[in-house]
């Protein structure tokens, strides 16, 4: 039932040993037709499988759907349609879909805008750095937790590592600003080692390091959860078999543990790739300042300044739409590649 079931893991091997559960049960072994028939079984004959019949028997369930669907329509799909202002002139106070068509005017405008290209590359660099560092670290940390023998120590360490996940982004930004300030801890360390203290948040060359470090601090501990769950589902017999074959701890890790968590890794990689263009807009907005726009300004913050601060709604919408489309393409292609390679896709 579950991709990453947690509790079932322990009882299965015992049953398998006793011959109760067959070793392999391929869910695809049942002919497709039969499965489909099973699923439809309740419906009986075909003429009951109509909308009219469905509404008649399930109208109460459909009434439960009214408010949530209205929510999706108004607050999710209407703004999607609202992106049409990227191609129409919008004036504050006019219809949310703009006044008149201007075609590709705003698209051409941002393609010729040097600031757009600066924030575009900043977004890519920040996204790639975050992905490259924040994706593998939870795996490493989960494997480290997994090697701890003392359960008490393990529990305490996990609790501590999850804590930053629960903090508001404003608190995290506040901590970053304080730690990097001229009299903050990092500068205390530097000066105790004999260095010159630096106003980090005014130096463009430091922003990426600071951003990614804070991201690591905030996300890595929590990121281990799914891997730890996947680790508990690995069949202990596999380790025993590996030991009989003479595998030491490292080889067991390489040949049993890592393959055991690969499906989880792939799913999380797809999700990370799909969201990497959306890198921490709120965090950057809280951390950056005009002195470090050169490296800190990303597409989302630029959209915010152009649209909200300067009221160029159509222009900002065009840039935002471009970013959202890249995100969509990224997640679709990551999912497609994963499906082609190993069959571990999101859908």
């Amino acid at each position: 039932m579950s991709a990453i079931g947690v509790t079932e893991g322990s009882s299965q091997p015992a049953l398998r040993e006793a011959g109760v559960v067959p070793e392999f049960k391929d869910p695809n072994s049942t002919p497709k037709k039969k499965r489909r028939a099973d699923r439809k079984g309740y419906a009986g004959t075909n003429n009951t499988n109509t909308w009219k019949h469905a509404f008649k028997t399930d109208w109460r369930l459909y009434t439960l759907l009214i408010l949530p669907l209205l929510f999706l329509l108004v607050f999710r799909y209407l703004p999607m349609a609202g992106n049409v202002i990227a191609f129409r002139r919008f004036r504050p106070g006019s219809s949310i879909f703009g006044d008149e068509w201007v075609g590709m005017h705003y698209i051409e405008m941002f393609i010729q805008d040097p600031t757009f290209w600066r924030v575009f590359w900043n977004t890519i660099i920040l996204g790639v750095l975050t992905l490259a560092i924040c994706f593998p670290l939870p795996i490493v940390l989960a494997l480290m937790f997994n090697e701890l023998r003392s359960n008490k120590f393990k529990r305490i360490a996990q609790s501590i590592s999850y804590l930053p996940h629960f903090m508001s982004i404003v608190i995290v930004a506040g901590m970053v600003l304080q730690l990097t300030s001229v009299n903050g801890t990092i500068n205390q360390l530097i000066s105790s080692l004999g260095g010159e203290s630096m106003p980090f948040m005014q130096l463009p060359e430091w922003f990426r390091t600071i951003y990614v470090t804070s991201e690591v601090w905030q996300t890595v501990g929590w990121g281990t959860i799914l891997y730890l769950a996947a680790l508990t589902t690995i069949d202990p017999q596999l380790y025993e078999a590996a030991r009989i074959d003479g595998a030491n701890r490292w080889k067991q890790m390489w040949h049993v543990t890592i393959p055991g968590i690969t499906p989880t890794m792939i799913v999380l990689l797809i999700l990370n790739v799909g969201t990497f263009m959306a890198v921490g807009f709120e965090k950057v907005l809280l951390l950056y300042n005009p002195l470090i726009y050169e490296t800190a300004d990303i597409i989302a913050t630029y959209v915010y300044r152009v649209g909200i601060t300067s009221s160029n709604f159509s222009y900002a919408a065009a840039i935002g739409l471009f970013e959202a489309l890249i995100g969509l393409v990224l997640i679709l292609s990551a999912n497609g590649i994963a499906r082609k390679l190993g069959g571990n896709s999101l859908w």
Partner: peptide, 10 residues
């Protein structure tokens, strides 16, 4: 998703 600006306008 619709993005910041269409949401704001809405």
């Amino acid at each position: 998703n619709g993005g910041l600006i269409p949401n704001y306008v809405l």
